[in-house]
Simulated scan of single mutants.
Amino acid sequence: MAGWLSTHVLDTAMGRPAEGVTIWLYRVSGNSHKKIAEAVTNADGRTDTPILPEAKFTTGTYELVFFAGDYLRATGQAGADPLFLDQVPLRFGMNEDAHYHVPLLLSPYGYSTYRGS
Results as ranks from 00 to 15, higher is better:
1 M>R: 04
3 G>E: 09
4 W>Y: 11
4 W>E: 08
6 S>Q: 02
6 S>N: 11
7 T>D: 01
7 T>A: 03
8 H>C: 07
8 H>W: 02
10 L>H: 04
11 D>K: 02
11 D>G: 02
13 A>Y: 05
14 M>R: 09
18 A>L: 01
18 A>D: 02
18 A>I: 00
19 E>Q: 10
21 V>L: 06
21 V>Q: 03
22 T>R: 06
24 W>L: 15
25 L>P: 00
26 Y>R: 08
26 Y>H: 14
27 R>Q: 14
27 R>A: 12
28 V>C: 13
29 S>W: 06
30 G>Q: 14
30 G>L: 10
34 K>H: 10
35 K>I: 12
37 A>T: 12
39 A>G: 02
40 V>T: 05
40 V>D: 01
41 T>M: 02
43 A>T: 07
43 A>N: 04
43 A>W: 01
44 D>R: 12
46 R>W: 10
47 T>A: 05
49 T>N: 07
50 P>E: 13
51 I>H: 06
53 P>D: 15
54 E>D: 12
55 A>L: 03
55 A>T: 15
56 K>V: 04
56 K>W: 09
56 K>P: 04
57 F>W: 08
58 T>L: 14
59 T>A: 10
63 E>Q: 15
63 E>T: 15
64 L>Y: 07
66 F>C: 06
66 F>D: 06
67 F>G: 01
67 F>K: 08
68 A>K: 03
69 G>L: 08
72 L>V: 07
75 T>N: 03
79 G>D: 04
82 P>Q: 05
82 P>Y: 15
83 L>F: 04
83 L>P: 02
85 L>T: 08
86 D>H: 15
87 Q>L: 10
89 P>L: 08
90 L>N: 11
91 R>T: 13
92 F>D: 06
92 F>C: 13
92 F>N: 07
92 F>A: 13
94 M>V: 14
95 N>P: 04
96 E>H: 11
97 D>H: 11
97 D>R: 12
98 A>D: 14
101 H>C: 11
102 V>W: 09
102 V>N: 08
105 L>M: 12
106 L>A: 10
107 S>C: 00
108 P>R: 13
109 Y>S: 14
110 G>N: 02
111 Y>W: 12
114 Y>W: 08
114 Y>K: 05
116 G>W: 09
